[in-house]
């Protein structure tokens, strides 16, 4: 077990690193895990695509109706997928009490929040990008005109999901019936963000004659500020014993 010749080079002087640096390391760690388990990521994408397909089956082949509601289906698909990916992101932390390992490293719990919340964001964002062509194909919407605006809506909407999602997933991952608990806590909470995201996306997809998009985006940005602020402040209370 011991090879004394390897002794050289181990010694170094551990030193504190900043909040954002540790958040970046946690973020990088999560991306690495996602990459190494990309089969799981693929399954998540297929799940979201299947959701979009199911909406069209549930409503029948009425193209006009589907086109009109496309924004709603897109966000429901993202929301359903987000619960799975958030739950998975904390299952990884509870498996060997790795969250304790991070805490004792030591990593500031707020850095863990930032790292994980920011890590879940791009995941959902990427997922929503995969869903866009499906949206075009299935629901006959045109996204070419407002792609830039749509990117903004998707980014803000995904961020609004991941901040409260991260803190609730941390709670649910330690409770019984975690798979039921996370959506039960998260879905009603996200109604405002969902309303704003759907409305803003619909304006992009169907035209915005009244120029309302800006105010919906502003609203969404405001929600983000509140959710991220609360998450950042309260997350340490959730993970510290």
């Amino acid at each position: 077990m011991i090879d004394a010749s390897a002794e050289r080079g181990i010694a170094f002087r551990p030193q504190p690193i900043g909040l954002f640096h540790s958040a970046a390391i946690v973020f990088w760690k999560d991306l690495l895990i996602e990459w190494r388990t990309r089969a799981r990521l693929n399954a998540l994408i297929f799940f979201a695509v299947a959701t979009l397909l199911l909406f069209s089956f549930a409503l029948g082949p009425d193209t006009a109706l589907l086109r009109q509601n496309a924004a709603g289906y897109l966000w429901l698909g993202i929301l359903f997928a987000s619960v799975l990916s958030l739950g998975e992101s904390f299952r990884v932390e509870t498996e060997n009490s790795s969250m304790d390992g991070l805490k004792l490293a030591p990593v500031d719990a707020r850095a863990v929040f930032l790292g994980k919340a920011v890590g879940n964001g791009p995941m959902l964002f990427a997922l929503s990008f995969v869903l866009l062509p499906i949206l075009v194909a299935l629901y006959d919407v045109s996204i070419a005109g407002g792609l830039a605006a749509l990117v903004g809506v998707l980014a803000l909407g995904c961020a609004a999901i991941t901040a409260p999602g991260t803190i609730y997933a941390a709670i649910a991952s330690n409770a019984r019936a975690r798979d039921v608990l996370l959506p039960l806590l998260l879905f009603p909470l996200l109604v405002p963000a969902l309303l704003a995201s759907v409305k803003a996306s619909a304006l992009v997809l169907q035209g915005d004659p009244m120029h309302q998009l800006g105010s919906w985006l502003g609203l969404l940005a405001g929600f983000n500020l509140i959710y991220w602020g609360l998450g950042f402040t309260l997350f340490p209370r959730v993970v510290e014993d």
Partner: peptide, 25 residues
């Protein structure tokens, strides 16, 4: 509990901690 990430390699698990400790090399 080992505090290890099951999906990471042995090296990646240690690298994570080393970086959190601010190790240069």
């Amino acid at each position: 509990s080992s505090f290890l990430y099951e999906d990471l390699t042995a090296e990646q698990n240690l690298l994570l901690l080393a970086r959190l400790l601010g190790a240069a090399h």
